[in-house]
Computed example of a mutant assay.
Amino acid sequence: MSDSDFTQRFLFDEFDARGELVSLRDSYAHVLAKHPYPQPVAQLLGELLAAAALLVGTLKFDGLLILQARSSGAVPLLMVECSSERELRGIARYHAEQIDATDGLRELMPEGVLALTVDPRNGQRYQGIVELDGDTLAQSLSSYFANSEQLPTRFWLQADGRTARGLLLQALPAQQQTDPEERAASWQHLTVLADSLQAEELLGLDNATLLHRLYHQETVRLFEPQALQFRCSCSRERSARALVSLGEADALQLAEEQGGQISIDCQFCNHTYAFDSADIAQLFAGAGSDEPSPTRH
């Protein structure tokens, strides 16, 4: 298990509530290494990575979770994917000349919307959309769940360009407490305590210490951590399928226009897949997308 990239679940014995904590360092560093992000953009992207990891921990599915934020401002796109195998990747698009070091979510992403998509390998794709109407991504995500029919869920997210951390609290179906007023009071108690958490505490404290800081008067069970890692899902095979969708004549013409080969760049990891006319002929002959032998003439 990675010592730096993991989620860890916890339960309250006296309340119908659970929680999840996430810590990202290596995978966050991999994402930031692919593009020269300004610090405010790196922070937002780290928070979204942490949110995706927390959400995957709450879902039981086989596929891909996608968080995509769009706006009319200096950051027109934030996009993070986390698979059910707990593999993360992310990207941001930004206009550097419009970004100030002190900008937050409202300044960077005005008129923003956040789409949450669950794309299972088998079954129906689901998408929910919410406006980015909070001061932070955590507030906007919390609003999304508050306005849905799902269980009450709150987020706390922080990132500083080196570490991305997050805390999620979620109400559970009534078992310990069946009285609605009692359940509401307990939920408020837990979230008010979490609201007291300072950024430096979330970024700097280990999970056991953090939970003791917040809930030392409660009985909290902390479970074993589950590893996360950066991994891009791009491949030569997927790029080849995109070429096949063009048709052989159009693919060959495109290669000729581009000086003899088509280069397909992955926006997430900057890897380039190159296909020359011989590769294209091989594809359409049904011989696959393997890279040709270097001795081929």
Rank of each mutant, 00 (worst) to 15 (best):
L222Y: 03
L254T: 04
Q176A: 11
E81Q: 14
P294E: 11
P225H: 09
L205K: 07
A74D: 05
F61L: 11
V22R: 04
E182D: 13
P120D: 14
C269V: 03
A42W: 02
E87C: 09
Q177S: 13
F223Y: 14
S293T: 00
A51Q: 12
G259R: 00
K34T: 12
E257P: 00
Y126I: 10
S2P: 07
A50Q: 00
D3T: 10
S233V: 04
R238W: 04
C234G: 08
C232P: 07
R241F: 06
H189I: 06
H95S: 03
C82T: 06
M79A: 02
E87I: 05
P294F: 13
N147Y: 08
E85P: 01
E131N: 12
S277C: 11
Q170V: 05
A227W: 12
A240D: 13
T191W: 14
H212S: 07
T295C: 01
G123N: 14
I66Q: 15
T153Q: 11
Q124P: 02
A52R: 10
D250Q: 12
I280N: 09
V41K: 03
G128W: 08
A92F: 13
C269T: 02
D103Y: 06
P225V: 02
Q150P: 01
Y28Q: 07
G288D: 06
A242W: 13
G286T: 08
A96D: 11
V220H: 03
R165P: 04
T163H: 09
E256R: 14
S23H: 03
